[in-house]
């Protein structure tokens, strides 16, 4: 019963998010001269939307696996959908709504973190590898908070409340850097659980850390040459996220029964929607670089 309700709810939310976002885009006015901040804000929108989308589908699958045992498990679905919708609609979205959803996403992420920590601590074995591997993932809800934070940042950029481009860029770089690092920790844990059985599984624990490191350099004020390198690492990270979906689809195929056994393998196999979280964070990182570029509009 809950399974079907959940499926309907998820598809409904997703449809609403995409349609809402596209409708807002459709109403776009003829572009005025767009500032660098506008560009960066738009880019942050895309980053936040990608991240929220990844959270939406990943939590939908994982919480379906958890049989939606309590109502709280629907929260990330609702919040991530709203966050995705407002992010897709970008500057067209009323400011208060955007702020509201972003703050909701941040709070939901923090609350989720709390629930997941609580879940592990009350399990037999407590803070053991077993529970880190198989209980509710400790770090995952953090991605929802990040989507909220990035959405908030996009809005701040648009509103012009932020100080200099340089300073905002560095702040954004720090945010993206930390976000990627958190993601790396989660991926490392789950790929360690999979014993890194395929060499490609090392990719998402080597490329993104490099991007995170480079971004951290930007955040503390490294110079222009680093900007180019960082951009390269971020594109590589974004690509890793997209390629990850492909690898994970292959992984599902490698499970017993392959795609024909989807009702098991989508849940037990590698999570399809998880890797694009890297892409979302990398896009946000690229937005931070845009703010720091030397050229003028």
């Amino acid at each position: 019963m809950r399974g079907r309700t959940a499926a309907i709810a998820v598809s409904g939310l997703f449809a609403a998010a995409v349609l809402g976002g596209l409708a807002a885009r459709g109403r776009r006015r003829p572009p005025a001269r767009r500032t660098r901040r506008d560009h960066a804000a738009r880019q942050l929108d895309w980053g936040a939307a990608t991240l929220a989308g990844s959270v939406l589908f990943d939590s939908a699958i994982e919480h379906y696996r958890g049989s939606f045992e309590h109502l709280g498990m629907y929260v990330p679905l609702a919040v991530a959908s709203a966050s995705m919708a407002t992010s897709l609609s970008g500057g067209r979205c009323p400011g208060q709504l955007r702020t509201g959803t972003s703050v909701a996403a941040m709070l939901a992420g923090v609350a989720g973190l709390g629930f997941h920590v609580y879940d592990i601590s009350k399990r037999t074995g407590g803070w053991s590898w077993q529970n880190l591997f198989y209980a509710a993932p400790v770090g995952a809800p953090g991605a929802l908070s990040l989507a909220g934070l990035i959405g908030l940042a996009a809005q701040q950029l648009r509103s012009g409340d932020w100080p200099s481009d340089q300073q905002s860029g560095r702040a954004l770089a720090a945010l993206a850097s930390a976000g990627i690092l958190g993601d790396v920790a989660e991926v490392w844990l789950l790929h360690f659980r999979g014993a890194f059985h395929n060499p490609a599984m090392y990719l998402p624990v080597t490329v993104p850390p490099a991007a995170s490191l480079a971004l951290a350099g930007i955040a503390v004020g490294a110079g222009r040459p680093t900007l180019q390198t960082t951009r390269g690492w971020l594109w590589a990270t974004a690509a890793t996220g997209l390629a990850g979906v492909g690898f994970h689809a292959w992984g599902v195929h490698r499970m017993m029964g392959g795609w024909r056994n989807w009702s098991q393998n989508l849940l037990d196999g590698p999570p399809l929607p998880a890797p694009p979280s890297y892409t979302g964070l990398a896009i946000a990182g690229l937005a931070s670089l845009r703010m720091m570029e030397d050229r003028h509009d």
């Binding site: 590898w129 077993q130 198989y134």
Partner: peptide
Amino acid sequence: YPYRAHQL
């Protein structure tokens, strides 16, 4: 061990 433990 070469591979990780299974879910209990």
